[in-house]
């Protein structure tokens, strides 16, 4: 019985993790459109787009090798694998025992490695530019990401993400460690940077020279493009889920208890939707940073995490 329940939970998690991010992308777009006094696209537009792209043919540049063809699959699969490790409506996840935060960060790194290789494979200057810039942002955001998750893990006493979420959800809000705001700030900045959103990068820009993430996808079409877009959506979804569950762990479903599932689902969807809406507001109200000012923001993220470390070191949990 419990086995069947576990399977059921895993199935819900899988569905949620793979398809809910597409709605979140829709919410961000809708909020941005509304703030610009436009009506905006339907919430499920991203899904429609993906289905259409999957049905289309693909044009491969003649300069590219097998790396270019492989990259969308690898990128998507690595992001999906990480999504399987980050809790959503319940803190129990299918790959819970393997969900070490270092592994999560390095899996996202693998996904990026493949994408950047494929970008250089096209032999076009725009894609090379994207690969260089993305590597730069990633190299500087990784330390802040490791430090902030390190602090969260330290407070919780574990290095596994689902367990962290579980420990935090057990505690009352007043008992949360005072370093939580610091970690939250650090992680939010890093998440924005790694997802290539404003103010680090603008996903809606049409000027190639200012692109970071989008320029790597310029040569993709059809199913390849669909996988890349979906992979980026998965990344956004798992970042929002991570923030929502680490810092606002309200109403999580308990494993193997069916009755708590509806509340868990509702709470997860509500929390991530709010975060996505906030992201939309942020994107609408902030200007993009100059490329070399990105380091200042990442340094702020690192400094917040270092402050959290200092606090944990000198005072304890």
């Amino acid at each position: 019985m419990t086995f069947a329940l576990d399977i059921g939970f895993a199935a819900i998690h899988l569905a949620l993790v793979l398809f809910w991010p597409l709605v979140l992308v829709g919410i961000v777009r809708r909020v941005k459109a509304r703030l610009a006094c436009r009506r905006g696209l339907p919430l499920l537009q991203e899904l429609t787009d993906l289905l259409k792209l999957f049905r289309k043919g693909e044009v491969i540049p003649d300069t590219a090798t097998w790396v270019f063809r492989l990259a969308p699959w690898g990128t998507w699969a690595a992001s999906a694998l990480v999504a399987l490790m980050v809790p959503t409506f319940s803190w129990s996840v299918p790959l819970g025992a393997q969900a070490d935060f270092i592994l999560v960060i390095y899996l996202l790194g693998s996904s990026r490695f493949l994408r950047n290789l494929a970008a250089l494979d096209t032999a076009t200057a725009f894609a090379g530019l994207a690969a260089s810039r993305e590597s730069f942002v990633a190299a500087l955001s990784e330390p802040a990401m490791v430090l902030s998750l390190w602090c969260a893990g330290w407070v919780a006493g574990t290095s596994r993400i689902p367990e962290m979420v579980w420990r935090f959800s057990e505690k009352a809000a007043a008992e949360l460690s005072p370093v939580h705001p610091l970690i939250l700030v650090a992680l939010v900045i890093v998440a924005i940077a790694e997802n290539a959103r404003v103010p680090f990068d603008d996903p809606t820009t049409h000027l190639e020279l200012t692109m970071i993430h989008e320029a790597a996808l310029l040569e993709y079409s059809g199913p390849g493009l669909a996988l890349m877009q979906w992979g980026a959506g998965l990344h956004l979804g798992l970042s929002l889920a991570l923030i929502a569950n680490l810092f606002f762990p309200i109403g999580l479903a308990a494993p193997a208890e069916l009755g708590t599932v509806p509340l868990g689902l509702f709470s997860f969807m509500a929390r991530t939707s709010v975060l996505a809406a906030l992201l939309g507001v942020l994107e609408s109200t902030m200007a993009r940073l100059r490329f070399f000012r990105i380091t200042d923001w990442l340094a702020l993220s690192g400094a917040a995490a270092v402050l959290a470390v200092i606090r944990l070191v000198t005072v304890g949990r």
């Binding site: 005072p178 370093v179 705001p181 610091l182 700030v185 702020l300 400094a303 917040a304 402050l307 606090r311």
Partner: peptide, 8 residues
């Protein structure tokens, strides 16, 4: 902490 963070 927020005061400190704002200073930073």
């Amino acid at each position: 902490y927020s005061v400190l963070l704002v200073a930073v």
